[in-house]
Design a protein around this nucleic acid. Structure first.
Lengths: 216, 216
DNA sequence: CGCCCCGTTGAAGATGATCAAATCTTGTGG
DNA sequence: CCACAAGATTTGATCATCTTCAACGGGGCG
């Protein structure tokens, strides 16, 4: 929706940022002065409790906005690079300016906020009401959905710990659910950092609450 | 931020809606043609699974927007009146028109979306990582925060079932946590449908993970 | 008065957490 | 190229929290 000549003017307002693996570029609670758009890589967003408990609130990939979630107490989450990340940074104070120049941007941001809200509510259902296996099935499907090419085998460049902190589980439970789904023939784990969804339909059924008879 | 003469023009675009107790006025999965602003009462938003499991994704009160959360599959949640509710309905298709006429509205909507996103992420932490007691403490404090007058004793016009479905617990666990907090001297339950926060500071400590020694 | 719904409390059970250890992967240095 | 160390993953055994099942008390409304 944004043409090439727009892109030049847009570039004037954007600050390009390269972030290396495991580096945080946005911190929970800090004044929300900027927001970001991912151009390359994957980032994870999370919140921490004083005692170290962690909840990953989402993952961001190219095209996603980061930093829309903010209240009086600043950014709602910390954002950290998963591998090398490239992004654009905008000033919130210039948001008005930006929106006046790029009316399309307004729609894009609102649409992004809407679908992020919808995703957040879906995640509430996951965290509040789904079993561990349902959670993992839901996660794998949504991860595929956000992959550009929706093939059966996809990269999964995050650790079990990250998945656990996203799903409100422990790494052990996540691992057990992986093996459970594998034994049920719904997925395969060809290599570390990769998953194959063998039976997406059945997986979707599991994600929505259907029981699986074998190896249940 | 919206003046009286603006209000008249705004009224032309808004459709006033009265909803009675337990009536749904927005349904999960339906095309997101409208969005709403609450003017009176309380509404609850929730998602359902095929087998009946329910997750309340939020509560709305006067001034809140409803229906911002929407994706390709329509509204993210169902909205239902808790008691009598009065609201304004806008067409999403006229959103552009609306925003052109009321630039302040734009800021308001973006700010609302931002803080809703922040609240959603906070709720993810609640659902994914907090214990039952921490969840209830968090809920009581946030409920007070959204009450107009922040007195110690406040109305709580929702059932235990609603609280349970909001916190990802069962009514029994919610009830037990109420009793636990009462015995710990942090809250009082003067009458059905009312709570008194006796020790907001300690309650906040509990919500953030501090243990309580007596009656723990 | 009696019914129904809501809330509370008790006891047993299940899911996921915790603790522990073995295996595999990855990266590093000899 | 191989040995080794550090971290990630898997699996097993036990434990705790929350759920489930059950029963009881109270208030509102017909």
């Amino acid at each position: 929706v944004i043409g090439p000549e727009d892109f030049v003017r847009l570039s004037a307002l954007a600050f390009r940022l390269d972030v290396s693996d495991r580096q945080a570029f946005m911190t929970e609670g800090e004044p929300a002065e900027h927001f970001f758009t991912m151009t390359q890589g994957v980032a994870k967003l999370f919140k921490l409790m004083p005692d170290g408990r962690r909840q990953i609130t989402g993952f961001a990939r190219p095209g996603d906005f980061i930093g829309l979630a903010a209240g009086v107490s600043g950014y709602a989450s910390t954002a950290e690079a998963v591998g090398a990340v490239r992004l654009c940074r905008f000033n919130r104070s210039q948001l008005r300016l930006l929106l006046d120049d790029f009316p399309q941007m307004e729609e894009a941001i609102l649409a992004a906020a809407s679908s992020e809200l919808a995703a957040a509510q879906a995640q509430m259902m996951v965290l509040g009401r789904k079993t561990s296996r349902e959670r993992l099935a839901t996660f794998l499907l949504s991860w595929r959905g956000s992959e550009s090419q929706e093939t059966a085998t996809m990269p999964l460049p995050i650790t079990r710990q990250d998945i656990a902190d996203y799903l409100g589980l422990t790494i052990e439970t996540v691992s057990r659910c992986f093996t459970g789904l594998r034994h049920a023939g719904l997925i395969a784990l060809p290599a570390p950092g990769e998953v194959t969804l063998l039976e997406p339909t059945q997986l979707a059924a599991v994600a929505e609450g259907a029981a699986i008879c074998p190896a249940d």
